[in-house]
Computed example of a mutant assay.
Amino acid sequence: MMRSAPKYLVPVALLALACTLVSAYDPSPLQDFCVAINSSTSAGIVCEWKFCKDPKVVTANDFFFPGLQIPGNTANRLGSNVTLVNVDKLPGLNTLGISLARIDFAPYGLNPPHTHPRGTEIIVVAEGTLYVGFVTSNTDNKLFTKVLNKGDVFVFPIGLIHFQFNVGKTNAVAFAGLSSQNPGVITIANAVFGSNPPINPDVLTKAFQVDKNVVNYLQKQFCSDNRN
């Protein structure tokens, strides 16, 4: 005779299914707002969506974030800094499907090749001159680039590798909107050469068609960066 599953497994399974169904895209709003609270885990399951704060105790501060007028610190190897305002910093973004970022560049600073797995990005230059671009998927790996000046706008389609490079002799500033409350970011060099634990050097040597000493050197550089 078959034993019935423990009763607690049913709600856990339903919760896991719900998390799976909403993980591909941001959840659509079913009410005016759903200010996030940090209680979106149950039975060890973590969801990308967040539970709603009681509307009776929501205040204007739940929809407010100060400080984007403050320049980010670009004193690093890349000469750039991204200040992201996502749902973790602005709870009122929950279920609204958007977020915002300020990107600061020192002269010749770079926001290196990266992707946002859950969001399209649209960027507007506030100060300076940026060389930007993105690469299409492996069907043809076509590169689209443009030099942007103050007031210019450019869009990076969801999931595609893209970058921004300050080609001017002065600081540059850009603001980016993203079509997700938590778009995520994968910086290509960090992910490939700075993974934890490291990817087997034989894999990277063959993938990049370079000497193994080059791979070892790059892994040391990026593993060091990740520990800072």
Rank of each mutant, 00 (worst) to 15 (best):
M2D: 15
Y8E: 15
L14N: 11
L14P: 05
L15N: 10
A16R: 13
A16V: 10
T20H: 14
V22N: 12
A24L: 10
D26C: 01
S28G: 12
C34T: 00
A36I: 10
T41D: 08
T41I: 04
A43L: 03
I45C: 07
C47G: 03
E48H: 13
K50R: 15
T59N: 09
T59A: 06
N61I: 03
P66F: 01
L68Q: 07
Q69R: 13
A75T: 12
L78P: 07
L78K: 08
T83A: 06
T83R: 04
T83D: 08
D88S: 15
P91W: 01
L93P: 02
G97E: 02
F105E: 08
F105Y: 14
A106Y: 01
P107L: 00
Y108D: 06
Y108H: 15
N111T: 01
T115E: 03
G119V: 07
G119T: 06
T120F: 11
I123H: 00
V125T: 04
Y131R: 11
G133Q: 04
N138A: 11
D140T: 04
D140C: 05
N149V: 03
K150L: 03
G151H: 08
V155L: 14
I161K: 02
F163R: 13
Q164D: 02
G168L: 00
N171Y: 07
A172N: 05
A172T: 03
A176R: 01
A176F: 04
S179H: 00
P183D: 12
A189T: 03
F193E: 02
S195T: 00
V203G: 06
K206E: 13
K206M: 03
F208I: 05
K212S: 11
Y217P: 00
Q221G: 08
R227S: 14
R227G: 01
N228T: 12
